[in-house]
Amino acid sequence: MSQDSKLLIPLHVSYVQSLGENKDDLTYHLTAHLRMNAIYWGLTALCVMGHKDALNREEMIDFVMSCWDEEAGAFGAHPDHDAHILATLSAIQILVMQDALDRLDIPRVVKFILSLQQPSGVFAGDAFGEIDTRFTYCAINALSLLGRLSELDVNKTVDYFSKCRNFDGGFGSTIGAESHAAQVWVCVAALAILDRLDIVDQETLAWWLAERQLSNGGLNGRPEKLEDVCYSHWVLSSLAILRKLSWIDSEKLEAFILSAQDSEGGGIADRPGDMVDVFHTVFGVAGLSLLGYPGLVDLDPVYCMPAGVIEDLGLRKDWQALPRRT
């Protein structure tokens, strides 16, 4: 048990490094549609743990570029997969973190992103038109990283967010949808990038977010649901943006995240005893960084990227994490 009370950094680093070696596993291939996201998650986890160089930079950039969909002018999740805004944001985030934006045809990708905005203000994920506030966040984050936010119709965009706001202070995926912590994060972070947090009922929302913590220390995503490590990022990042991280019990949450580590193979799971994956690994590590866990690199809760990278771009917003402990 004492092993569980510490973040097993070397083990998690080798876990992330080994992810590409599972090509004999059906699960690896069944998740090809998430490959670009997985690389972004892996790289971000490594950056936060201070081991950015554990994955080969050139190989990574080459892979990203091999996912370019020439017809659409954006990225798919995997070579020969169709362009989608989810993969496109991850690709841009990777290129920014690897300081390789010079490889990108910025005007074309900006055109793709802007083409996805609907008359209501929300964004579609691709040309087939599924809409979701997640996709709006992807668009805003990407445009901001590319320095092209000025091309966005901000009022129209903010208007749609305000229509997704619920009485509990939270936000849903579309107008009328129930508040959900992941959806709250994308909306709050997008509004933070646009400097429009004024439309958020901050006191009510921070209350709703604080009520996500359960007696076992973990966080859930909606009332009366189970805890899950990935909410460590969504709830905590939202609270950090609202500067209310102190409204939950950070010690108990930290213990919960650490208890979901696989102390043999590395990686973090949704809950203790479950199978690990890179998604819960990055969001667990991200949560620990915001909680001030010793030795970790600061995470920017708005962009979910290393804080230093965002600061260098001059994009840092007024969020607040807990002080880094030594």
Binding site: A269, D270, G273, D274, M275, D277
Partner: peptide
């Protein structure tokens, strides 16, 4: 991945 119990190395193989 959600709600999948961790498997031993031999179970994975």
């Amino acid at each position: 991945m959600h709600n999948v119990k961790r498997q031993s190395r031999s179970a994975i193989e």
